[in-house]
Amino acid sequence: MSEKKLAGLWIDRQKAIVVTNHDSQDVSEFKIAGTVETEVKDPKFYEQAAHSAENKLRVQFFKEVGQLITNSEELFITGPGISQEELRNYLLETPQFKNLKIELGVSQKMDEKNVLKEVIHHYS
């Protein structure tokens, strides 16, 4: 087992499933650290208001994910689309995570059990 504090997650536009091998201090077995979901934007908003609201929700979503990976030394992010790249860019612009080693992957929708398996496989 690694003595490093590792984290992995699956993310799309609305949901992130986070797996870590640590709590705030101690390294242990990999487990689900939490699931973060964001609101779906209401299409009735005017375009500019919708874009602004969506950006605020996205930042809040990324902040909540960041709270679950605090103290991680390495992070594996997977998922469909470009959400993993957007999260990586957000984290690298955040002082707390500027030295975090981040690797990206691509995968289709996964449940918690499969995310846990994928993260364990990635780090083994």
Rank of each mutant, 00 (worst) to 15 (best):
Q84R: 04
P43V: 11
K101R: 13
K56A: 14
S28I: 10
V40F: 03
K5E: 08
A7W: 02
W10P: 06
G34P: 10
S72P: 00
E74H: 09
F45C: 05
Q108K: 15
K98P: 07
L9S: 01
K117R: 12
L104D: 12
N21C: 14
V40Y: 01
G81K: 00
F61M: 10
H122R: 06
A50D: 09
D111W: 05
E118M: 14
E103I: 07
E103H: 13
L6D: 03
E93G: 06
S52H: 13
E85G: 10
R88I: 00
E73V: 00
K15I: 11
G81Q: 07
S24H: 13
L68D: 04
A53H: 08
A50W: 06
K101T: 04
A16N: 10
Y90F: 03
G81I: 03
E74F: 07
N89V: 03
T78G: 12
E54M: 01
E85Q: 10
Y46T: 11
T38Y: 03
V115W: 09
E74P: 06
K56W: 12
S124V: 09
Y123P: 10
E37F: 00
F30E: 01
D42T: 05
L75I: 02
K101C: 05
N114K: 11
A53G: 02
G66H: 03
K41M: 13
K113A: 08
L100G: 08
D26W: 07
E86L: 05
E29R: 09
E73C: 03
N99P: 09
L91H: 02
W10A: 01
E54K: 04
E54T: 08
G8W: 00
A7S: 13
I17H: 05
K113D: 15
K63L: 12
K4R: 07
E29D: 03
A50E: 15
Q96K: 10
V115Y: 09
M1N: 15
V106G: 04
N114W: 04
L75Y: 00
I120C: 04
G8R: 00
T70F: 01
S24K: 07
L9F: 00
H22C: 08
Q60S: 07
A33S: 07
T78V: 07
G79Y: 00
I11C: 09
T38F: 09
Y90C: 02
I11T: 08
V36E: 11
G79W: 02
K56C: 08
K117I: 10
T94D: 06
T38G: 15
D111P: 02
N89L: 04
H51F: 12
H122A: 01
T94R: 11
F62A: 00
V119D: 06
A50G: 11
Q96A: 10
E93T: 13
Q48F: 05
Q14I: 08
G81N: 03
R13P: 13
Q14H: 10
H22D: 15
V19H: 05
A53M: 07
